[in-house]
Structure formats: C-alpha cells, structure tokens
Design a protein around this nucleic acid. Structure first.
Lengths: 199, 199
DNA sequence: TGTAATTGATTATATATTCAATAAGTATAA
DNA sequence: TTATACTTATTGAATATATAATCAATTACA
C-alpha cells in the first residue's frame, strides 16, 4: 500500500514536509486523536522541530486546511472546453475516481469541515473555498446558457445544487458502498439531462 | 436563549440525562474537545456518576450516536399521506426549519459521521440509519409511481440522490448562509418537478 | 437491610509546549 | 583558501496541565 497523493509527491521544504506528515497522521488517527507526537512520528524527525516551524498545533492545522483547500480549488477544472464536456469533468470530480487516496482525502476534508462549527478560522476558509467553487461552476453553466447548450433559470442556483451534491458525496463516502454512490451518479445524470441540457 | 431540542425535553432516568448532557457538551465544544469533565459540568452532577452508568467514554458516545440516529429515523415521516404531500414533507425535513436547534443537531450529526471513518461502531450505526432512510424514501417514491403520480426509472436510485442532498445540506449548513441553502432548495424543487412528477 | 445513586480524592498517563544545547550550513572578511 | 560569524535545522530532556478511569466511602431510598 503506497501513499500516492498527487499534491504531496515532492514536498518543497521542511514546512511542506510537516504538512504532509500532518495530513497522513490526520488520515490515520482522525482529528480528535491527532497529536503532535503522532505528527512527529509520521514526519520522521523530532516534535520539537515542528515547533520551530509552527507556533502551535492550531497554526499548523489551519495551515494544513489552507493548503488542502488550495489543492481542492486547483482541482476545479478550467473552463477551457465546451460546456457539455466541462459538465462531464465536473461529474467525474464530484463522484471521484473512487481511488483510495481520493476517498481518504475527501474524508479528511469532511472531518475538517465539521470543525468549522467550532473554529472561526476553519469557517472562513471553507466559506471562501465553497464560494469559489460555486462561482466557478455557475460561470460555466452561464456560458452554456449563452451558447444555447443549457437551459436553466438561474445558473448560480443550479451551481448551488451541484455543490451540495459534491459535499454530500464527500460525507456519504465515509460510510456508503460504491453501489449507492453509483445510484446517486446515475440519478444526477438524469437530473442534468432533464433540467440542464437544452432539448 | 433556551435549549428546546424536542427529543430531550424530559429525559427519562439518569442515563438519558447523561446523554442529554453529552449532546449539549458536544454541541458546545465539538467532538475533539469533548471531555468527561465537560459532560459532567453540563450534567450538573459528578463525573464519577457517569462512570457508574457507562463503562467508559467510548460506550457513552456510541450510545449517544445510537440515540441520536434513533431520533433521526423517527423524524422520517410515515408514509400515511399522498405521495405528493409526502415529498413536500421530505423537502421540509431535508432543508429544515432553519431553527437553531435543528442546525446544531445537524452539525453534531455531521461531526459524528466524520468519526465513522475511524470507528467501526459509528460506521455500522450510520450505515444502518442511512439504509433505513433511503429505503423509506424509495418506498414512498415507488408508491407514487404505482399511483401514477411519479415517473422515474428506479425509485431507490432517486432516493439515493435525495439522501445525498440531505447529507450535503447537513454538511453545508455548518458554513453556508441561508441564501445559498435557499438556492439549493429551489433547484431541488425544479429537479422534482422535471424528474419526478408525471406530466 | 440491601440496593442504587452519588461523591471526592487519587492515580497513571498523555499531551502541548518550552528550552537549552548541538549540529549543519552559508555567507563574509582576511 | 581559511577563519569567523551568523543563521537555520535539529534534538532530548523537562514541565505543567488535562484527562480518563478507579475506588473507597457516603447518602438516599426501597
């Protein structure tokens, strides 16, 4: 079993190595059981060194979330293709490749999202990221409407449902089997056909 | 500010009082910072008494989740009305009354769901609850199809998307403003009109 | 009398954080 | 090139605190 998460392939500098270690420790032990000691183990170097790069645990975790959400935002495909093709790509992103690393990444994100209920920094970062993604999707849908390919009332309203399904799948992945996810994907396709595409 | 969560109105017996206290402590401090001491504070009696009723913290939290999911399942409306009316009730349940207690309950559920990634007991309970809800929705959709009110290929597939939206809204509520939730609701209504109701 | 409720004190451990000390690396002046 | 100063990386030990869990003792109660 290898750890092949793309964006951590070759960390640049110690700080990024620490983020990588924190991410793996989070995946393995979960947020509630995440300790500096466990991060240090994953890091391979001493715990003290972590404090040389970060003031405290909080700062480290907020930095990790920032880093992860940056990756999420970068993963949103650029609108450099036809609206129809773009929607296909979005669907693939939402429902994922069902690879282990994808699923584990989603789980980590959801776990951090849950913390946003009690931490303003987390809340702010998720708000920013969610807004960004919704707007990106809305923009493409608007382009599709302009091109006559799509037919919707309000693109940002449609994008809002896209995003809810994205987050819902992330949360469901934790417990649901692949068959259920497949059902959701099929039904979402049906929605797109009937409610998005022009006749 | 009063705590008016319906199902905790009058706890029967000490165990239920402890569950109530645990729930409030969870809401206030979050799962990661949830300690027996804080539960004891909320409980109003000594921490030791908690150990008289529960073997350890784990047992208590699993029992809380079990209890909460029971409430969730009981909240799924009975199919004793017309399919069309039932769908309306389901939408209200999914998007909630936006009352504080509803939102806080959702947040607690999502936070516990995130733990399912690292705890088999949690995983099992959520699987059971999710299956139950999906099947309940699917049954009603099937009834609507039989009555000629609905027109879908596969009711359990449609129910799967309903459930994803339910969970997605729960997770989004943590950070999203009410306007965004309203957008999702409007789009979901559009979906139902175009993809569920017969012409 | 016996059973359940309740408490306070206690303990062992885990955890975040600090700190002084050392090693390694890098630029600079001779 | 070498010596010097300076910065950064790195560590192990130490500390204060928080936390889960235990338990013997006491109170309420049936």
């Amino acid at each position: 079993m290898t750890n092949e998460i793309s964006f951590f392939e070759n960390p640049e500098g110690t700080r990024e190595e620490i983020l990588e270690a924190t991410f793996y420790a989070l995946r393995q032990h979960g947020y509630a059981d995440l300790t500096i000691s466990k991060i240090g183990d994953e890091f391979g170097k001493s715990q003290s060194l972590i404090y040389h790069h970060y003031d405290d645990k909080d700062e480290l975790l907020v930095d990790l979330l920032d880093y992860m959400l940056e990756q999420v935002e970068n993963q949103v495909p650029l609108p450099n293709q036809s609206p129809e093709a773009y929607i296909e790509v979005i669907i693939d992103e939402i429902f994922g490749t069902s690879s282990n690393s994808d699923i584990e990444f989603s789980q980590a994100v959801i776990e951090l999202r849950a913390q946003a209920a009690h931490d303003d920094d987390y809340n702010r970062l998720f708000r920013r990221s969610d807004d960004f993604i919704r707007k990106q999707i809305a923009r493409v849908i608007q382009a599709g409407v302009d091109a006559g390919a799509f037919d919707v009332e309000d693109p940002s309203q449609t994008a809002a449902l896209f995003h809810t399904v994205l987050v819902g799948i992330q949360a469901e992945r934790i417990t649901s089997d692949e068959d259920t996810i497949d059902d959701v994907r099929a039904e979402f396709r049906r929605y797109i056909e009937h409610c998005l595409l022009s006749e």
